[in-house]
Design a protein around this nucleic acid. Structure first.
Length: 431
RNA sequence: UCCCCGGUAGCUCAAUUGGUAGAGCGUACGGCUGUUAACCGUUAGGUUGCAGGUUCAAGUCCUGCCCGGGGAGCCA
């Protein structure tokens, strides 16, 4: 009895004896009464150890136990307004598994460098715990939405044979007696699998060996990439709108307490419902010029431009019909206006940048060959990709959503590094 | 690759025109029966990132290097 009780369910055990297995989060004492804050992975509960009500050796244990010591504590649960979480455990026994000395992360302030060096321990703190629970919910909501809407999860390889795209820098690795590269995207493979399954998505890590050092960039990040046969660029945007709405509303419903830990303004998220504003690249240029940004037609948007655009709307905003030169070789040109593509980005509000990039793909084999040549890509490497336009080609579209970027927005974080358990950054690959 | 900023106690930071390296937190010990990053008292804790230079004297000024932070470029 009392076993397998977790703090998140503690309200079911009022008046009952339970056993909590966890770690000491903090301790306060006032002479004959000691307050132990215990965390167990699901929450934090305040435990009272009263000198007059426990055996002397139990009280002594409570005096000696230090931050992050592992322990099993037993006692009766009661409602208590004064305690964080609203419940309290009235201790009658403590079993200490390990007394910790010199835990590096104290309840006072620390700098980023120090915390990153101790990322393996930082993850135990309340804030990091909340962020990563929200991350898990974003991923779950993402998959639930797609699984419930006729998509099948077909994952793409991480080790790939050739540099499939021009400018981006790839991480190289040995593959026995040849070279291989870590995946930058599963999209090209998705384009193959939709011809078998119709609607698919892949979910996995992607790697960019770019020497970017900003709050929006990681060297290794996770992307979910849906791809759909017989979807045009407008079907594609409609799907993105529904999908992002589902993720936001699900996190809002299921992770309120975590959002509360982060002091997130919930009204900003409650507002995220269709329709999202949709503007063409041309209109976006007009908007930027109106706001005083000197930008020429054909230039891609950087962090500054994305911020200006996102701050002009209170919902995510689609920008579509980017100039061909801003996008990858496989993006389909608008038949009416071949200098622009049937592409779109989705820019998150509140100054967060691009969370989605997508578009309709080239489905004509002649045009695709031409694009591969124009981009100086090795035709041999794309033989299989060209086959997809040779054997039953169809109009198709897809997009990629950056998990860390959307989590950063949901949590309103200053830096993307807190959205992934162990971030890989330009000058940091430890721990 | 470029620009800006930083490196002083375990952590967060201070140190006037170059003039005896200091505080808070944490640790250790003690006190307190309702604490909320509790509080109060006492204690210990330092080759000021590294190397060289200027000076009677360098944490402070100069040069080089190392490490880190923010940003640009880059980024389907």
């Amino acid at each position: 009895m009392g076993k397998n009780v977790y703090i998140e369910n503690i309200s079911k055990y009022i008046g009952k004896e339970v056993e909590i297995r966890g770690w000491l989060y903090n301790r306060r004492s006032s002479g004959s009464i000691i307050f132990l804050l215990i965390r167990d992975g699901t929450g934090i509960i305040q435990c009272i150890v009263s000198k007059n009500d426990v055996k002397p050796e139990i009280f002594k244990s409570a005096q000696n136990v230090t931050q992050e010591s592992s322990l099993i504590i037993k006692g009766k649960i009661r409602k208590e307004e004064r305690a964080i979480g609203g419940y309290e455990l009235f201790t009658n026994n403590i079993k200490i598994l390990q007394i910790v000395s010199d835990y590096p992360i104290t309840p006072k302030s620390h700098g980023v460098g120090f915390l990153m060096k101790n990322r393996h321990l930082w993850l135990r703190s309340k804030r990091q715990h909340a962020i990563l629970r929200i991350r898990a919910e974003v991923i779950k909501a993402s998959r639930d939405y797609l699984d419930n809407n006729g998509f099948i999860n077909i994952d793409a390889p991480i080790l790939t044979p050739a540099a499939c795209e021009s400018t981006s820098t790839l991480f190289e690795t040995k593959y026995f007696d040849q070279m291989a590269y870590l995946s930058q995207s599963g999209q090209l493979y998705n384009e193959a699998t939709i011809m078998s399954f119709g609607k698919v998505y892949c979910y996995g890590p992607t790697f960019r060996a770019e020497k970017s050092k900003t709050r929006r960039h990681l060297m290794e990040f996770w992307m979910i990439e849906p791809e759909m046969a017989y979807f045009d660029w407008e079907d594609n945007m409609k799907l993105q709108e529904d999908y992002v709405t589902y993720i936001v509303q699900t996190v809002l419903n299921k992770r309120k307490s975590e959002l509360h830990v982060l002091n997130r303004d919930l009204s900003k998220l409650e507002n995220i419902k269709p329709p999202f504003p949709k503007i063409s690249y041309d209109k976006a240029i007009d908007l930027l010029r109106k706001k005083g940004k000197d930008i020429g037609w054909g230039e891609d948007f950087g962090g500054d431009e994305e911020t200006i655009i996102s701050e002009s709307f209170d919902k995510p905003v689609f920008i579509h019909h980017y100039p061909m030169q801003c996008k990858a070789f496989y993006m389909k040109p608008d038949p009416e206006r071949p200098e622009v593509s049937l592409s779109n980005d989705l820019i998150a509000p509140e100054g967060y940048g691009e969370i989605i990039g997508g578009g309709q793909r080239v489905d004509d084999i002649k045009l695709l060959k031409k694009k591969i040549k124009e981009h100086n890509l090795p035709m041999d490497a794309f033989k299989w990709y060209l086959d997809l336009r040779k054997y039953g080609t169809v109009p198709h579209s897809g997009f990629g959503l950056g998990i860390e970027r959307i989590v950063a927005w949901m949590c309103k974080l200053k830096h993307i590094r807190e959205t992934i358990p162990f971030p890989r950054l330009l000058y940091r690959i430890y721990p």
